[in-house]
Design a protein around this nucleic acid. Structure first.
Lengths: 182, 182
DNA sequence: TTGCTCCTCACGTCACGTGAGGTGGC
DNA sequence: TTGCTCCTCACGTCACGTGAGGTGGC
């Protein structure tokens, strides 16, 4: 029950699911400071180290860099939140980039195959058709756009981008959405 | 009008918008073979090289690795397509990972701020509400799910994931979607 | 003594960027 | 001769992985 260090790297590696080299890497980066003893240089870890490792793992699985994790482990709560929020923004950018890459690939593949042109993506036409089949007429569709735009404008932009529309086309739709009285 | 090599690295860099080091890097990786002349070792590029560079740039902006680009420049059309399609699949995986990271970050930020919990993401409730406001009743919403599921099942899965639903919840919705007669 | 775990370098990965130190052409 | 561009290494980045070569504990 005491917190005496009694775990070797190998054991910690097994417990945490990380590799030995990863553990040593975190140590070199200053994120982890196990106790060394004797002239053999063996490392010993205790429960606090395990907790620290779990925190690091959580942050890593959110895609944060070791540099930022280092800050998160020491900074104030407020600053930490800013870092996490910054990461959220970065993720949005990354997703946008990937979507653009997808669109480019689809145009590159276009000439040859027309059948499965949209692997997992939906086109504007398909979307419109589905809303129609569900029972919405043109006016209903615009009411939907309008609510979407009013409630979460950024998500609306995001959604339109996911349909592969150009910026000018998106702007048109959003403009019209805003002009409709609710 | 002949295709004599007459462009130096610096000029090619300016024309293509790539850096000198990038050009040299592509050369080292075997993607580009400018002509060297004299004992000065100066490189000269011609129009064919410029075309090659444009192809490389296109593939790079689709997120392909230099290794795969090397293959794309030599392989058969069929094999090339497979590589591009593989990249499409990878992108989907990457987007899914980023979405999971977003969800994790939101839960990490949750305790403190409840107001802007969804930066650019829409929740299931919001979505349902918007469809309702546009004029769809419960039955209409399920008709919509059903068409979505039938037309593009993978995109349906993708969409539900983007709302932050759990796998089991998604499976429930898709199952119900499939059971509705169109 | 035999395994097993541990240790410390050091180099490789990926797509470049950034110098350092030196030479060629106008 | 002065700039300007060019050249070839070589090392740094990011988060580790993979040995090599050697030592400590049961």
């Amino acid at each position: 029950m005491t917190d005496e260090p009694n775990l070797s790297v190998g054991k910690v590696a097994k417990i945490t699911g990380l590799s030995r080299s990863t553990l040593l890497h975190y140590e070199k980066r200053g994120l982890l400071s196990p106790i060394k003893y004797g002239n053999s240089g063996y490392r010993l870890y205790n429960q606090k180290h395990l907790n620290q490792i779990e925190r690091i793992k959580t942050y890593r699985s959110a895609g944060l860099s070791l540099e930022n994790i280092d800050k998160l482990l020491t900074l104030t709560l407020h600053k930490s939140q800013q870092l996490l929020e910054q990461r959220l923004v970065n993720i949005n950018d990354e997703i946008h980039q990937l979507r653009e890459q997808q669109r480019l690939l689809l145009t590159l593949l276009q000439p040859q195959n027309k059948k499965k042109q949209s692997v997992k993506t939906v086109t504007k036409e398909q979307w419109s058709q589905m809303l129609g089949e569900a029972g919405l007429d043109e006016e209903g569709k615009w009411r939907w756009h309008s609510h979407f735009e009013k409630k979460t404008p950024e998500a609306h932009q995001d959604f339109l981008e996911s349909l592969g529309l150009s910026e000018t086309e998106i702007e048109k739709i959003r403009k019209k959405s805003r002009s409709i009285p609710l």
